[in-house]
Amino acid sequence: MSALALPVPEIAPVSARRRHLVAVPAFAPGAPSIPSVLPAERPRSVPAVSPDSDRQVSSHPARSAEGRLRLTVRGQIVLSVLALVVAAGIGSLLGLALPADEALPSEVATVTVGPGESLWGIAQQAAGPGEDVRVVIDQIMTLNSLADSTVHAGQQLSIPVEG
């Protein structure tokens, strides 16, 4: 069998339906031939002019009534990826502009860790009034090159002096 692109006979006027291909049996010798006439092109819609305004009204199916374009799924994905790239670029520029760490204190004191003491307790004693204890813990860990907040009894720690 072979297939020819023949228009499907329209039963009712349907403007939004697409025409489909119809399977036609193969031509056998002696079979009546079908004339090789190409179907006429569908007339394209011409933008109409609204009677009460000088603006043209678009009848393009991809445009909504407000005149905005609809995006395909691929277009939405591309737009999302582009937005993420722009956000990452802005974030990295802001990260370079803002200082990452506070400066280390200029004066330090040495403290010996007692039994049962924690880094939090030592930082609370070293922190000034209104100073965030978490910042002091970070400073102590940086000054002493500590990987975590575990301290042992008898360990010598450099702590920042308030003021």
Rank of each mutant, 00 (worst) to 15 (best):
D52M: 09
D52E: 13
S53N: 04
D54V: 10
D54G: 15
D54N: 15
D54I: 09
R55Y: 12
Q56W: 12
Q56T: 14
V57R: 01
S59P: 00
A62L: 02
A62S: 03
R63G: 00
A65R: 07
A65N: 07
E66F: 04
E66W: 08
G67L: 03
R70S: 00
R70L: 00
T72L: 04
T72D: 03
T72P: 00
V73L: 07
V73G: 04
Q76M: 13
Q76R: 10
L84M: 10
L84Q: 06
L84I: 05
V85H: 06
A88M: 09
A88D: 15
G89P: 13
G91P: 01
L93T: 10
G95L: 12
L96E: 15
A97L: 14
L98D: 02
P99M: 09
E102V: 14
E102H: 09
A103L: 11
L104N: 12
P105F: 09
S106M: 07
S106F: 03
E107T: 10
A109P: 07
T110D: 11
T110K: 11
T110N: 12
V113L: 01
G114D: 10
G114K: 15
P115A: 14
P115I: 06
S118W: 07
G121E: 15
A123G: 08
Q124F: 04
Q125Y: 13
Q125G: 04
A126T: 05
G130R: 00
G130S: 03
G130I: 02
V133D: 08
V133L: 08
R134F: 06
V136S: 03
V136P: 04
V136G: 02
D138K: 14
D138V: 13
Q139S: 14
I140L: 00
I140C: 01
M141A: 11
L143A: 00
L143R: 00
N144I: 01
N144M: 00
N144F: 01
S145F: 01
S145W: 00
D148N: 04
S149N: 11
T150W: 05
T150N: 08
T150R: 02
H152N: 12
A153G: 10
A153R: 06
G154C: 14
